[in-house]
Design a protein around this nucleic acid. Structure first.
Lengths: 346, 346
DNA sequence: ACGCATGATTAGATCGATCCAATTATCCAA
DNA sequence: TTGGATAATTGGATCGATCTAATCATGCGT
């Protein structure tokens, strides 16, 4: 309950003012506002004129209080400066405004502590629901307590262990599988999985898809081909050296995501290895930049904006039917072949 | 007044429940909630225990109604998928949560019509204020009518003609001036100003800074050096040809922003012109990618996240003192020299 | 024992819109 | 003319928290 000090109260136009000025009761004005067919056409005109004249603006907060409804949805994500989440947020907002809701934004910066403060604060605004892309190492139990048993919740992207919420995920396994298959088809045999934190569920799933494809091709992945890295360009670039630190150096890499891939690309160039020629790499996400770099990045498209719309729709379905069975939706992904995977193994 | 159909009403825990269960009045519970020193320590404990036990969550909407205050701020921007605005939004949100406010997000996609619908909808949630980065060709009068005379408003980035609102702007003129000076110092004489819509105020200001520097150096800019383009990579890339369509082709370009610069870079490469060697170019914004491309982009850093924080602070000052004189704040910018401007004139 | 200051608590009205049940107006059939 | 159906309107209570002014305790000095 952080307090926000505030201005000298400024009276706004209310239904009462309109009612008085147009000689009807407050109830009638309310009916007009909601377009009820009960009011006489002439009365409606009179009231509507007065509404316009006084510049009335609807107080949705008051209405929501009385009606025990809500017209907002909380959107909690890690980091808007990640284009993947920015696009996702755009999609969410797009779909929500279309349904008459407004988006309450919050970002956690991957900190579970801030995530909890933030959610507590957002809950005080009684949103109709919450779209949550949990920070790493979130405590599912605590979140569940914070959100209460009656809030509609959609979890996105990262699994929230031990919470019976709807869940929208990308098909991480299949995505990594597709990328690996693609590199195998190009003749690569020594393929690394590069980047990501091994303890995050999305990284695990992608590694799984990679491993599946490798094993199906009869190539048990060498543990030295699994390299961790924070999903940032800088760190990915720095870890490049680890790829070549031993005799069975890979000729290609499936990267955790596009950021990592772009970092690796820089690292390769710095070593004099030409990406797309001497070494093949793939990303994940298909951020706008992927198509623009040289060589353009082969990657897995996930259409974050469409995912955002989908998340909003799923959440609203849950809002409308609280008792429907919990849903786990896996969104399909797509391989986009570009120049970065053009290398034949050397 | 779009209606949002809603669920079967679900009762929440209220001050009344707590009051009843702990044998005090609702007023006392309210005092406890706000940490008033009036309540006896023992009573406070009893009430707080009950609050925890029943999992009470504060209904800020109800409180705001009674107190005639608000704990939200509306943030309206064009496009979150533009990293500049995404960073800006992060900064805004960061500063707002720090002050106990919550962010109502809305994006217009540069459409004045959607901007108006959006603002109307947001106003119904009675935000304490609005941070608005207006869509191009916004109608200041109409917006002013929508926002009403009592809303605290901070306009960001683009001037809103004919509205007495606080305004936070980047020092566009000085930024472009710095970039042009830099290229002049490197010996360039034929310098283009590339990209942007000539009717947008930010573009006009940047062109002004460019022209000032050129004229100060005794070089009246050739009209053929002024090339318009939507601020997207694709279009910028396509317009590259116009630079070389005549005899006095430039050897360098000050670009409207980083996106345009990166587009131009692609266009140059496609023509076999090596950016940073055969041709010098500068950007504007310093988006993360600028430092990462090859050659890295010389550009003007504007620190969008810091601008976001600043915008939030300015707005909150306005919220707290509605009658202070209107402010026009120009945020300083900084030249960041990197490889893309390394070309001596050929 | 009384008055009075200080400390704690509370009943009741209030914010702005909505819901409910009740009322008034209107018209047509019998 | 009366009854009853339909159309249009409305007073009063309500959502959950807060404010105001009033009440009830308690202690202290005289």
């Amino acid at each position: 309950m952080t307090e926000t000090q505030q201005p000298p109260p400024r009276r706004a136009v209310t239904v009462n003012d309109i009612a008085r000025a147009s000689g009807v009761s407050r109830a009638t004005v309310s009916l007009v506002l909601r377009g009820s067919p009960l009011v006489h056409a002439e009365t409606r005109n009179r009231v509507e004129l007065e509404l316009k004249r006084q510049g009335y603006v609807y107080n949705r907060g008051a209405a929501n209080l009385r009606r025990r409804t809500s017209s907002s949805v909380a959107l909690v994500i890690n980091d808007l400066s990640n284009p993947f989440f920015a696009e996702f947020a755009m999609g969410v907002d797009e779909a929500l405004v279309g349904e008459g809701y407004v988006t309450l934004l919050g970002s956690t910066g991957e900190s579970p502590a801030r995530q909890e403060t933030l959610l507590a604060s957002l809950m005080e605004h009684s949103p109709a629901g919450v779209i949550l892309s949990p920070a790493e190492h979130s405590d599912g139990e605590r979140l569940q307590r914070l959100l209460g048993p009656h809030t509609a919740v959609l979890v996105f992207n990262r699994e929230l262990p031990g919470a019976g919420y709807d869940f929208l995920a990308l098909d991480n396994r299949r995505g990594a599988w597709l990328a690996t298959e693609h590199l195998l088809a190009r003749g690569h045999r020594r393929i690394a999985f590069f980047g990501g934190h091994a303890d995050s569920s999305s990284c695990q799933q992608r590694r799984q898809g990679y491993a599946d494809a490798m094993i199906a091709a009869g190539i048990p992945p060498d543990p030295r081909w699994l390299i961790e890295s924070a999903p940032t360009r800088v760190e990915a670039s720095q870890r490049t050296v680890e790829l070549f630190a031993h005799a069975r150096a890979p000729t290609a890499a499936v990267c955790y995501n596009d950021n990592v891939a772009l970092g690796l690309k820089l690292g390769l160039i710095a070593r004099g290895v030409r990406p797309g020629l001497d070494f093949a790499l793939t990303g994940f996400d298909d951020i706008p930049e992927a198509a623009q770099t040289t060589p353009p990045l082969t990657t897995i498209a996930v259409e974050p904006r469409a995912r955002g719309r989908q998340a909003a729709e799923l959440l609203l379905q849950r809002v409308r039917d609280r008792d429907a069975p919990t849903r786990q939706v896996v969104a399909p992904v797509q391989l986009v072949v570009r120049g970065s995977s053009g290398a034949p193994p050397s």
